[in-house]
Design a protein around this nucleic acid. Structure first.
Length: 320
DNA sequence: CGTATTTGACCTGCGC
DNA sequence: GCGCAGGTCAAATACG
C-alpha cells in the first residue's frame, strides 16, 4: 500500500547489513557496536549467533559467503577472521530454536517432520472427538506431531539498515502473521514464499536498538528459481536467479539490494579459511560464490552492485 | 473477483 | 502444571 511506497521511497537512505538475528555474542558488538541488550538476544548472549539462528549445520563459509562478494568489509579484522570459529556445539546452550549439532543438513538432532506443510495432513496431536464444533473452533490448526520437535530449517539472517521492512529479494512472499516481540516496540512479521511447494519463510523485524536496522531471517531453502526479477527494480539479473536455482537444489535467498540498501558485514568472526567443500550442507551456489566463480554478470557487471560492494571485494575471493 | 494483508485465536516449546 | 513468548492459522478485510 502506501506504506510500501513510502517505504520504498525512504529506502533511499537504506543501508544493509548481513547478520544473524541480532547476534549478541560477538557479531553485533563488533560490527555495530550496538549491544542488543534485550530479551531473547540477551538470552542468546551465550550463543554464537549461529546457534541463535538454529542453524544446524553451520559452516562458517556461509558467513564468509555473506561477507565475501556481497559484503563490503568496513573494517577488515584479519585476526578474527582467521580464527577458527568456536565449534557450534561448544557454545550451544541451545536456544528455543534447535539444538545444534555439527551434522549434516538433515541429520540434526531434530528429526523428521519436514518443515511445515510437509506432514501436516496427519494426526492432530491428540485431536479430540466430541465437539466437532469446538474442534472447528479450535481450528484445524497445524497438526504437529506431538513427540517431535518442529524441525527448523537452517536459518540465517541479515541486517539491513533500511526504512523498508520487507526487502525485495526477488522472491514473492506472502505475509502470514505478525507478532509483537517481547522487549521490542517493533512487531515481527512472518512471510512465506508464495511459490507452491516452497516452504521458505522469513521473518522481518526491526532491531530494538536501532530501529533503522531491519533484521531479516530466512528459514529454509527455495526449491525454485527466483520467480520474478522485474529488472530495474531488482539488483539481480534473471540469469543470476536461474543460476542460483541451478547451482543447487536449494537456493539460499539472496537479498537483492536496492542501491540504497547496503549490507553490513556482520560476521567479523567467522574464519575465511574454512573449506566449504567439507560441508555439503551449503549450496554449491554458496560455495561457488565463495570461490568467486559466480558466473553471472551480477558481480562482474558491477552496476548497481557497485554501490554496495566495493570493487575490491568483487574481485576478492581472496581465499588463501 | 482474485490476491495480499491484518489480526485474533490457537498451538508449541520452554523455563520456572 | 502453568504461564509466557514465539510461531502459525485462517477468517475477515483491504486493495487493485
Amino acid at each position: 500500500m502506501d506504506k510500501k511506497e513510502e517505504l520504498k521511497t525512504e529506502n533511499s537512505m537504506a543501508n544493509s547489513t548481513f547478520s544473524d538475528e541480532i547476534p549478541s555474542s560477538f557479531a553485533l558488538p563488533s560490527i555495530f557496536d550496538m549491544p542488543c541488550d534485550q530479551g531473547d538476544h540477551q538470552k542468546g548472549s551465550s550463543l554464537g549467533f549461529v546457534d541463535m539462528l538454529g542453524i544446524q549445520d553451520y559452516n562458517p563459509s556461509l558467513f564468509d559467503w555473506f561477507s565475501a562478494p556481497m559484503m563490503p568489509q568496513p573494517q577488515p579484522q584479519p585476526q578474527q577472521l582467521q580464527q577458527p570459529l568456536p565449534s557450534p556445539t561448544s557454545t550451544v546452550p541451545e536456544s528455543s530454536e534447535v539444538v545444534n549439532t555439527p551434522a549434516t543438513p538433515n541429520s540434526s538432532s531434530i528429526s523428521s517432520s519436514s518443515n511445515e506443510a510437509a506432514n501436516e495432513g496427519q494426526t492432530k496431536a491428540g485431536g479430540d472427538e466430541d465437539d466437532q464444533d469446538q474442534e472447528k473452533t479450535k481450528k484445524q490448526l497445524k497438526p504437529k506431531k506431538k513427540n517431535q520437535k518442529r524441525q527448523r530449517e537452517p536459518r540465517f539472517a541479515f541486517m539491513t539498515k533500511s526504512e523498508v521492512d520487507h526487502l525485495d529479494d526477488g522472491y514473492r512472499w506472502r505475509k502470514y502473521g505478525q507478532k509483537a516481540v517481547k522487549n521490542s516496540p517493533y512487531p515481527r512479521s512472518y512471510y512465506r514464499c508464495t511459490t507452491a511447494g516452497c516452504g521458505v519463510k522469513k521473518r522481518v523485524e526491526r532491531s530494538c536498538d536501532d530501529p533503522s536496522i531491519v533484521v531479516t531471517t530466512y528459514e529454509g531453502q527455495h526449491t525454485h528459481p527466483c520467480p520474478v526479477t522485474p529488472r530495474g527494480s531488482m539488483g539481480i539479473p534473471p540469469d543470476a536467479a536461474g543460476f542460483s536455482a541451478m547451482a543447487s537444489p536449494f537456493v539460499v535467498p539472496q537479498p537483492q539490494y536496492h542501491h540504497h540498501q547496503q549490507p553490513y558485514l556482520l560476521s567479523s568472526q567467522p574464519p575465511l579459511n574454512v573449506n566449504t567443500n567439507l560441508n555439503p550442507s551449503f549450496p554449491s551456489f554458496v560455495q561457488e560464490r565463495r570461490f568467486g566463480i559466480f558466473p553471472t554478470p551480477l558481480l562482474r557487471d558491477h552496476g548497481l552492485l557497485e554501490d554496495i560492494v566495493p570493487t575490491r571485494m568483487l574481485k576478492e575471493p581472496k581465499e588463501e
